[in-house]
C-alpha cells in the first residue's frame, strides 16, 4: 500500500493491529508477485501498439455506414437495443425480488436475508457465462445478449431497489392502512409513489452500465458491436479497430450524458 494508506490508518488502529495489517499486506504481495512469471513481451508488441494508435488516428471511415451490410452504426444500434431491452426486462423482474429483500416489507429477518442472498448470487454470476448459456438455448445473436443482461442486472437493480424501499417513509403506509386499504392498495398508493423516482433513476444508471456490457457481449457471440471488433482484432485490421473503438467511446459518452441529464431531472 501507498504512503497515503498508512498515514490514513495510523490514528485508528493500535500498534499491534497495524503491524498485523502490514505483515498481511506484505505476505499477499509476496504471494501475488512470486506467482507471476516474468512476462515475455512479444517483439512485435511495440509495432502493434503503434499500428493500433495509427489506426485510431486513421480510422476506417467507410465502415461507419455501409448500406449493404454490417456497418458500425448497425453494430452500435444493436448494442443499444440489447442494453435497452435487457435493462427493461431486469427493471420489471427485479421488483418482486426487491420487496422480498427489503427488511421493512418482508416477513421477518430470515426472509429478507434470503432475498438479499439470492440477489447477491445473481449479481455474482458472470453475465458472460449467462450469455453463453442463453446462446445454448436460443442460439447465438442479440437475443441471447438481451436475456443475459436482463437476468444478470436483476442482481444489482434488485439490491438498489430494495435499499430504496428500506429507506422510504412508513408514515403514508400507516395512514393508508388506517383508511381501510388492503395490502395491494397500500403498495400502490403509499409505497410506489415514494420509490418510483428512485427506481427510474437506478434503472437509467444500470442502462449506462449495460451499454458497456452489451459492447462486450459480442466477444462470445451474443450480438452487438463486440463481434465486429473481435473480427477486426483477429484479422489485424487496425483501421477498423480504430473506428469501432471510437464508435464505442462516442456512444458510451453520449449515453452517459443523456442518462445523467435525465437522472438529475427526475430526482
Amino acid at each position: 500500500m501507498s504512503e497515503a494508506a498508512r498515514k490514513g490508518m495510523k490514528p485508528k488502529k493500535n500498534r499491534a493491529g497495524l503491524w498485523g495489517i502490514y505483515l498481511a499486506l506484505a505476505l499477499i504481495y509476496i504471494w501475488a508477485f512470486s506467482g507471476m512469471n516474468l512476462p515475455e513481451i512479444k517483439p512485435t508488441a511495440g509495432q502493434i501498439t503503434k499500428s493500433i494508435f495509427n489506426g485510431m488516428f486513421h480510422p476506417d471511415w467507410d465502415y461507419v455506414s455501409d448500406p449493404g451490410g454490417e456497418d458500425l452504426l448497425h453494430g452500435l444500434l444493436d448494442t443499444l437495443a440489447i442494453a435497452a431491452l435487457g435493462t427493461f426486462i431486469s427493471a420489471v423482474l427485479c421488483v418482486p425480488f426487491a420487496f422480498w429483500a427489503a427488511a421493512n416489507m418482508s416477513k421477518g429477518k430470515a426472509a429478507s436475508g434470503t432475498g438479499k442472498f439470492v440477489l447477491s448470487f445473481i449479481r455474482t454470476f458472470p453475465e458472460l457465462v449467462m450469455a453463453i448459456m442463453f446462446i445454448k438455448a436460443v442460439g447465438p445473436g442479440s437475443f441471447a445478449g438481451v436475456l443475459a443482461l436482463g437476468l444478470h442486472s436483476i442482481g444489482m437493480l434488485g439490491k438498489l431497489f430494495s435499499e430504496e424501499v428500506e429507506n422510504m417513509d412508513l408514515g403514508p403506509t400507516e395512514a393508508l392502512m388506517a383508511t381501510g386499504a388492503n395490502r395491494f392498495q397500500i403498495l400502490w398508493f403509499a409505497v410506489i409513489p415514494q420509490v418510483i423516482t428512485g427506481f427510474l433513476s437506478y434503472t437509467l444508471y444500470r442502462f449506462e452500465i449495460n451499454v458497456r456490457s452489451a459492447a462486450v457481449l459480442g466477444v462470445i457471440g451474443a450480438g452487438g458491436i463486440g463481434t465486429p471488433l473481435i473480427f477486426a482484432l483477429t484479422s489485424r485490421d487496425w483501421n477498423r479497430v480504430g473506428i469501432i473503438l471510437l464508435g464505442i467511446i462516442v456512444m458510451v459518452t453520449v449515453i452517459d450524458l443523456i442518462s445523467g441529464y435525465l437522472r438529475r431531472k427526475i430526482v
Binding site: 513481451i41 512479444k42 479497430v241 464505442i248 467511446i249
Partner: peptide, 21 residues
C-alpha cells in the same frame, strides 16, 4: 472509463499475446 475492461483486454491480447499480462 468508456471502454469496457474486456475490450481493453482483447486489445492487449492482440498486442502482447495470450496470458495474464
Amino acid at each position: 472509463r468508456t471502454v469496457p475492461d474486456l475490450l481493453l483486454a482483447s486489445i492487449f491480447v492482440a498486442i502482447f499475446g495470450l496470458g495474464s499480462l
